[in-house]
Design a protein around this nucleic acid. Structure first.
Lengths: 231, 231
DNA sequence: CCTACCGATCGGTAGG
DNA sequence: CCTACCGATCGGTAGG
């Protein structure tokens, strides 16, 4: 696999000299490429926004990561903010799809605790698994969006959280979850979302790893922490 | 109390420039003013860093907030990063002092649950109470520090968290807290720290308030969520 | 998508 | 702490 150089990501400088020269036949009828270039911008921007923050990342950084010149990202996106919004929307749509798929895989007679386990496990995957730069960017950079973009993202986020509400309320009704379910939900998401700050990926690209647990182990720990004994 | 400036903590730079210059009578014996100006920069920077992020805040913004011209903050701080580090160190020292004071106020025979309640309640106060910009900045902007500054901040943070460890371990030993205590601590801090993202202060200066609970109510909800019945 | 640019803003400094 | 300034970098655009 890895056909060509799918992750060259040329930090910077690597693509400073004039890539290809003037004559340039340029990909004749290669329309797919347009979509690919856009996607490279999106994934590169997600990675950089996560690592350096939105304001700390220049559009030149993003262009370089995609092997482009400084002005070229604006052929694909209206503005830096539009790129950020696209990263977040892309991330939320993927997260929603994965959550729906995970829930669909549940047995029809699955219990409440099992339902919550699947939601939590999927959420850890969305936060910490492969290609997991999009949602952390959404979680930690949403204040850089304007009101319109924010409400678009929030609509998807509300959908995502909506799947949790009946599960948490039913757990509360059966005394397996204590306290106001709204506050419980906010605190549970906090406990999970915070893992972005301290979790060291198994492949180890973060510094100061404080916990070397698998995502399954994190899921177990979370359920143990939140849930009471079944009645 | 607080005789003079017992917590100036002069991160760095404070004693680099020749402080006072040639002509200019300049406030004769007004030593307090120096400290006050420095403090105004710190509190203004904390507020702006929290609201706009570190990279999204210019040193000119900070100067204006303190009623200064654009170059003047650099008379008090070596660099923008030094200002950020000072905000975080100031915040952590205050948080540690308040935590120690809260624990000292506990009755000697206070139970484990009461100890945890005091820690959680104080933490909410540090995150969301008056003058609570410093710690959120530390939590959400620490990646902008260099390694040296980061380790200074981390030393204080480790001290702060050290007070929680025996309490959580004792609660675990008595079956009031389930699961690995290390992961439990990380998730509990996540649940609390995340409140910075959604809690609307009673005076209401944040948008999109999702929960109008008091800090006491948040504390109760947290303890209900995390703790099992006493044996 | 590149070339060639622009105006604005940024962190920081010399000298008083 | 202000005045006056600097080089670097930024987001973005015209025109092909």
């Amino acid at each position: 696999m890895t056909v060509d150089t799918p992750e060259t990501l040329a930090t910077e400088g690597a693509a400073q000299a004039p890539r290809r020269s003037r004559g340039r036949p340029r990909k004749t009828a290669d329309e797919r490429d347009d979509g690919n270039r856009r996607r490279e911008l999106l994934t590169g921007a997600a990675r950089l926004f996560r690592a350096q923050g939105f304001a700390g990342t220049s559009t030149r950084d993003i262009a370089t990561a995609a092997g482009m010149r400084s002005g070229s990202p604006f052929y694909h996106f209206e503005s830096k903010e539009a790129l950020l919004a696209a990263v977040m929307l892309e991330g939320m749509q993927g997260a929603l799809q994965r959550q729906n798929a995970a829930l669909a895989r549940l047995a029809p007679d699955a219990g409440l605790r099992e339902r919550l386990r699947v939601l939590v496990r999927n959420h850890f995957d969305v936060l910490l698994g492969p290609d997991s730069d999009f949602i952390p960017v959404m979680l930690y950079e949403w204040r850089s969006l304007d009101a319109t973009q924010r409400s678009e993202v929030n609509r998807l986020k509300d959908d995502y959280e909506a799947a949790w509400v009946p599960v948490l309320e039913a757990l509360h009704a059966t005394r397996q979850l204590a306290g106001d379910p709204l506050l419980a939900r906010l605190m549970i998401f906090g406990a999970l979302n915070w893992s972005v700050q301290w979790y060291a990926a198994p492949s180890g690209r973060t510094a100061r790893s404080r916990a070397r647990a698998s995502l399954d182990e994190l899921t177990t720990a979370a359920l143990q922490l939140f849930l009471k004994e079944a009645a």
